[in-house]
Design a binder for these strands. Structure first.
Lengths: 201, 201, 201, 201
DNA sequence: TCATAAACGAGACGGTACGTCCGGTCTTCTT
DNA sequence: AAGAAGACCGGACGTACCGTCTCGTTTATGA
């Protein structure tokens, strides 16, 4: 008694009531991804996700404000295999490694579906757009760090617009992902690396 | 049939039935664009377009198979100010001119809204996706022509992957358009031109 | 042309647009009744009605504000077989005839289901309650007319509370209907007639 | 194990554990009635009752199987002021006394709300319907006893259908309660008494 | 005095129905 | 035949409520 009463920092009550069911949480994310990849033509519905996850719709809306938010969390969870931030001492090597990993990830059907769907949800739903922006920002930051290191070593001109380089990378990625006009072939990372670096020296 | 076709002088054809009303046609496209640009948060509905254009819904579906198709025609009409295919004899000059015009167009709020909306419609509607792909292809072809001319003059390496270059341009365009993380500043065309060419020499 | 133009009172436009689909209208009422009678335990859903009627849910909500309103219209349509207002010159004869018809109607499973369901909807939905009140009022009026005639002939005491008599009739009806503790047997009309009249002489 | 199993005389299971909280019990019934009478338009929810009573929902469902059961207990508790079973030796006197008490109870707003709500819950929930039937049965029995006594004294014809008389009383009661078309005025008991008895002599 | 057991407030959960919204089609009358 | 008006089917949306299921806490025994 006196313990809890005297608890000086006693800021927030210890949470009473049933706690969030992590199994349901996971089941929802799993179901969302599974449906995205399996259902080729994909009006993936909230009801569908709920049924597939064996979950009540309310449970979804309790934790995610929007369908897009579900997909985004599925994406971040799926992509937790961290983007590498290689530091070999050589910009071309670092960059190629980064690009290889990035394009490899984008080649996974699940990831590709998620990104496509998220882009669709983001338009027309500012909240999802913001979430997506935050997600991409961490990727942009990682790439930017690599470039800055190279620039520090003189591998890029001092006045190089690093933001432009980053956009060229992710622009290519999203463009091919969304328009689907060309695949991410194995040699692409090396070719893009060469092009970017010699373009910005 | 032959009646209407042979009707060059178009004198007095019995012609029962009303002819296509071009005013309505235009009103629809105008309304679509107006709604896209004005309505900040934009569930631009077909009903809304119809009402705004003072037109029956059926009149819309008589001429366009899908909501996305309306937007696409609005886009092409709006962008009929033809993309230039400059031929100055110098690749850097040609390219910069092309990019300047392209980025200038993308900076118009109406165009930007249209492209964003179309991207959204395209996902989940394969037909619109195809239309959009056709639209972009003409742009890609124009750019490709410029690049081939430069390559013919030795301004690009013989083994340059022109498709990659094109994707780098349009990737940047769509990326900044959709993610909205950076604007199309005046100097961008020149900077990108320099970067691309020296990257692919 | 001139007909409609010359229409002198021509107050309101002649109604443009597609007209209400009477087939759908009927199908909905039919489906509602069919479901009520067949589905023994009957949370008859709006979706169910829509599906059974082969109709979009919106079509239902366009014309009826509430589920209860559907049932009420189904009831009035079903009960249009007018309550008789017999006038034989003898109150006992008139009353017995009226009661026989009334109890006969209440014995139909469809009617009984409708009345039970409506009573349920009426509680908790004031609008339906009002509709139901209006419906019952016409029945009360019919009975009241019969009684007044008898009273005019001296078959009932001049100070008889006719409202009470009416309530005794319909009270019995609804009570047995809702509580279901006793059926409407053939002799009931005659017995109730005798009781009421000798009770109010 | 064998301990508890072998316990054949199973006399007094000691009952360890916290005991039922009567304060909560009462709070729930109070809250239910308060909400029914105050909340004019009344989707009186279980969650609402729980919050109003300062009680967890489980505490409600531990003691009552259904929302309707709560209301029914609230009703019985509220109506424990026992229905009198007067025995003055005169049927008219007994009956008038009984009716006066009954109508008086039905005039209380709380009782009226409870009965209306219970009628609603009973439809669509057979269990509540059964509970309600049991409740009304005790009232019917009381009235029936009075009538039988009178019949024994020759105040009613020997072949009188007592069940019909009872239904006439409770029919009137429920009808006016549910339809609300007429109040329970002070003179009603006397008038109904006279009518019923002279109707069934 | 402590272990066991039940009841408690809180609140998340699965499920079902609700009433609304939109896309694309169909129907009516007018032009 | 084409147009404006607007009803239609289908199907997803997000909310509300019911009755169940955990949590951690509190209160009563019996060992």
């Amino acid at each position: 008694m006196s313990d809890s009463d005297s608890e000086p920092a006693g800021k927030h009550r210890p949470h009473t009531g049933r706690r969030r069911n992590d199994a349901a949480h996971e089941a929802i994310l799993d179901a969302a991804m599974r449906l995205l990849t399996t259902a080729g033509g994909e009006p993936v519905t909230v009801d569908t996700i709920a049924r597939e996850a064996g979950v009540g719709k309310q449970t979804i809306y309790r934790w995610w404000p929007t369908k897009g938010a579900i997909f985004l969390e599925a994406l971040t969870r799926h992509a937790r295999i961290e983007v590498p931030s290689p530091d070999t001492g050589s910009l071309p090597a670092d960059l190629e490694q980064f690009l290889t990993a990035t394009f490899h990830g984008a080649n996974e059907p699940a990831t590709a579906s998620l990104l496509r769907t998220l882009a669709a949800e983001a338009s027309g739903n500012p909240y999802v757009a913001e979430l997506l922006r935050e997600f991409t920002q961490t990727r942009r930051d990682a790439l930017n760090t690599i470039l800055e290191r190279g620039q520090g070593r003189g591998e890029l001109a001092a006045d190089t617009d690093l933001g432009l380089m980053v956009d060229q990378v992710y622009g290519l990625l999203w463009y091919r992902l969304l328009l689907g006009n060309a695949p991410f072939t194995p040699g692409l990372a090396k070719r893009l690396t060469r092009t970017l670096i010699s373009g910005h020296q």
